[in-house]
Design a protein around this nucleic acid. Sequence first.
DNA 1: CTGAAAGCGCTTACAG
DNA 2: CTGAAAGCGCTTACAG
Lengths: 336, 336
Amino acid sequence: VATIYDVAERAQVSIATVSRAFRRPDCVSEDVRERVRQAADDLGYRPNRLARALAEGRTNALGLLLPFYGLLAEHVARCALELGYEVVITPPPESTVESYVEAAIALEDRQIEGLLLCGDAETVREYAASRRNGSPPLVAIGSSPEVGVPLVTVDEEAGGYEIARYVLSLGHREVAFLCLAQDEVRPTGREHGYVRAMTEAGLEPLIHQGPATLEGGRNGAREIIARAPTVTALVSFNDAVAMGALRGLFDSGRHVPGDVAVVGFDNTPQSRYCIPALTTMDLPVAEVAERAVGLLRRQIDGGAEGPAEGPILVDPHLVRRESCGGAGGEVAPGTG
Amino acid sequence: VATIYDVAERAQVSIATVSRAFRRPDCVSEDVRERVRQAADDLGYRPNRLARALAEGRTNALGLLLPFYGLLAEHVARCALELGYEVVITPPPESTVESYVEAAIALEDRQIEGLLLCGDAETVREYAASRRNGSPPLVAIGSSPEVGVPLVTVDEEAGGYEIARYVLSLGHREVAFLCLAQDEVRPTGREHGYVRAMTEAGLEPLIHQGPATLEGGRNGAREIIARAPTVTALVSFNDAVAMGALRGLFDSGRHVPGDVAVVGFDNTPQSRYCIPALTTMDLPVAEVAERAVGLLRRQIDGGAEGPAEGPILVDPHLVRRESCGGAGGEVAPGTG
DNA sequence: CTGAAAGCGCTTACAG
DNA sequence: CTGAAAGCGCTTACAG
């Protein structure tokens, strides 16, 4: 990890000058400025934010305490705490890959010792590509095994397969998948599982393209119903899509599960309160968090020479509710 | 802000000893250890994590990048960025007040320059009580104006009033409120608005006690229907409660909005995809974030002597959908 | 415009 | 067990 001394040496100037070249470029001769930039680039130098903050007497950091933004963060924090780590989150200010990568780098600059990345494979890969060699160990959470970085995730393929199998076991033959984004780079695995189940059953997969959102689910359901009226079941990418689909089907005058069955994925808190309550795959978030933190810990301790561990997959499990009929199963508590 | 030098001076030992007293208590004589503790306590000393991290060469921090945990964080990050600040979040590992306060203090220890606190009034107040005089400026987001700290929030009372008025304007007379937690310390304002609207209309408020959750909403709706079958409208604390109520009403064989109208609060993404789509109050999250960051900025710049600004209230606005009938209004896009 | 020096607040060998 | 000293990586007056 290059320090300001290294840059100074390479650029043949004092560290004070290097510092100025960054902080007050106009108080430095152009020629020197250029040499410093060059040296810094060559060395992959990034200022140590800790030292800077200590020297400046300020951190440029705001804290944000936000208790309810999902279970994952809470679980991660708890597991990390047990190992003596704090966790700090930096929210990307925009929903773009660039913003995400920048936030990751900002975290690096804070000299964190390890990085947990949630995000799709494309984004994670993009960040991975920008890593220098002083970058902290990383583990991805929830993206696909193909990312090429240490990973823990639910076994999406197995989950997609299981829930599709379940739908088939109910007698459905024409079952479609909602929604796969057009420009989808990542294979998320869920639709792969669906495809495998269909293929094994000698059935034709029918995958609807579109954004995997509430809106996408609603539009997707309507379009499928319009285009392929004989479809009797919809396997959704996640619960949001499924909720949207429920609405789309309702708008189209279709009854769920009477006319068409719907299943989700994720087991979000809302899913059991939908009308009808969603049959879905539960994700063991706590386990994912625990294994992710554990893996990261090993990466940190093991150093670069540690044996590369293969992806850790944890199994999601089926929770049967009302949205695709079927026999019994869990419904909203106290309903029966 | 006391430093290790101050403690050393007061305890009559070297700074090395102070450091040891904290880091390796058993490498220090009991008597000295006690003196140091005492001095540290008296001075309200907290080690500077920045300096410690720099000296130790490690931070004990893990980064967690979690893109989708609510809009607020994203908006805050964007606004902060414009002012040259980064934002770092620390997730409380448990959902308890203590855990929350500890997380806030951990953030302080990271030498952040200002703190934004989301949380209910009780929790915020608890943290406020534990502040030392080196604590950074703070602004609370979303709790009630009574917290006694600089605050920006939506005008909950006005929102509760407006939506209750709207329900009354539809002709409902027996309208109940779901749910107010039994041990509610904080007056959230929403139910106050409801009470005011009812009272002004010469009607009797009917407030149901219970947790403000999906589950609470479902149980609440059922109990109200059982206990007061003539109720024709339910004003909910938030959309989660309303969604639960939708489900509870469904379970009780009541039709919404035919038999009973339901309204929510928050305008969550799901609310427009519910069946029926929820009439609710939209919260201008972006504006809240912007004003909160702005206020915090002023606190930071102004120092302690800056004029105390009163609470900043932003107005939520009604979004009419299907869940309480009424004339037209917005429905899920493309439905009509 | 540039460098040498002191300092930010803490920790860790190194002597005693 | 304790203290003096050096150092973590940077910045900022202070001289030149």
